[in-house]
């Protein structure tokens, strides 16, 4: 069968100009990608081994930039803040998204409205999402302050306090991305086979048993993929923080992407920043590949 298909494809390729066709069709896209993605990637690797002054390279320093990262307290702190942010946001999103998906599995009136409205947070421009939350948190113009004053309280401080600002950022991310988790998990739930659930109902299993013995194990691959996708994405979060807190107060919400951006464009340490970004890239790639291996293992079992 396989060889038959292959043979047919070879025959399809025909002769003459058609022989060059696959290359001609691949060429334009590849050229753009080589010019604007691959060349910069290589150039970035080169820049990461150099020291820069006023935007031009002045010396080759080998792996010095990479080594220096690990004794840079600000880098280590931004890495820690990022890990905390990602772990907290993604796990809350997974739990809420799963709960909401289970809730919406049975058709009822109002569900279409709910699904339509839930699309809004994840399609709104991230910069605007940050504006939304600044308008909620601001101590003078914010919704929280207005509500508190309407109920006779005083102003509410969110973005001026390190812990509150960090929680505020997590809340923003949960608001923005729980809907995506919900949609993926709902699609997963809807694609599960009916038979095991009917059998369980005939056997008189309670809803908790059905969830623990059937739904959850069967949903594990989809859940894993959704979590991996969100984790990779959350690791690169930039826009929302840039507009909401700019990394502050102090370093409380300074994610690794913000630190990298400041190092490159504010402090003009081009080589050092390049090394930082390459390191982020390697971490994310490692995450992605170990996740793929994990998923294969889940699939196999």
């Amino acid at each position: 069968m396989q060889t038959g298909m292959q043979a047919r494809k070879y025959r399809l390729q025909g002769a003459g100009l058609d022989l060059a066709l696959p290359y001609l069709m691949l060429a334009p896209g590849l050229m753009v990608v080589l010019g604007v993605l691959v060349y910069p990637l290589w150039d970035g690797l080169r820049a990461s081994t150099r020291a820069y002054r006023y935007g031009s390279p002045v010396a080759d320093v080998g792996f010095h930039n990479y080594v220096q990262l690990w004794s840079d307290a600000q880098f280590l702190n931004s890495l820690w803040v990022t890990v905390k942010f990602v772990a907290l946001s993604v796990s809350i999103e997974a739990v809420l998204g799963f709960a909401l998906a289970l809730f919406c599995l049975h058709e009822f009136r109002g569900i279409r409205l709910l699904r339509t409205v839930l699309i809004i947070p994840m399609v709104i421009t991230p910069v605007v999402v940050a504006i939304l939350f600044r308008l909620i948190y601001a101590s003078d113009a914010g919704m929280l302050t207005a509500l508190s004053e309407a109920m006779g309280g005083g102003g509410v401080q969110i973005l001026g306090n390190p812990l509150n600002a960090f929680i505020g950022l997590v809340v923003l991310d949960v608001w923005e991305w729980t809907p995506l988790m919900f949609l993926i998990l709902l699609a997963g739930l809807q694609s599960l086979p009916h038979e095991p659930f009917e059998a369980a109902r005939v056997d008189g299993a309670g809803s908790w048993r059905v969830f623990a013995d059937l739904t959850f194990p069967m949903m594990r691959p989809v859940l894993a993929i959704a979590i991996v996708l969100r984790t990779i994405d959350a690791f690169g979060t930039f826009d929302q923080v840039f507009v909401l807190t700019r990394g502050g107060p102090g370093e409380a919400t300074r994610l690794i992407s913000i630190y990298g951006y400041d190092t490159a464009f504010k402090f003009q340490q081009t080589g050092y920043a390049a090394a930082l970004f390459v390191t982020i890239g390697l971490v994310v790639l490692a995450l992605a590949f170990s996740a793929i291996r994990l998923l294969r293992r889940i699939d196999a079992s």
């Binding site: 292959q6 494809k9 070879y10 399809l12 390729q13 066709l21 696959p22 290359y23 691949l26 590849l30 990608v33 993605l37 691959v38 060349y39 910069p40 990637l41 150039d43 970035g44 820049a47 990779i232 690791f235 690169g236 930039f238 992407s257 990298g260 951006y261 490159a264 081009t270 920043a273 390049a274 970004f277 390459v278 982020i280 890239g281 994310v284 790639l285 992605a288």
Partner: peptide, 30 residues
Amino acid sequence: RFRLPFAAERKVGLFLLTLRIIPPVVILIP
């Protein structure tokens, strides 16, 4: 659709997918 020598088409596909996984911020400076 095509099967190229050395499975080149599959390699190109995998290469583009890997590029997608790398966060864009990595090439911001270059």
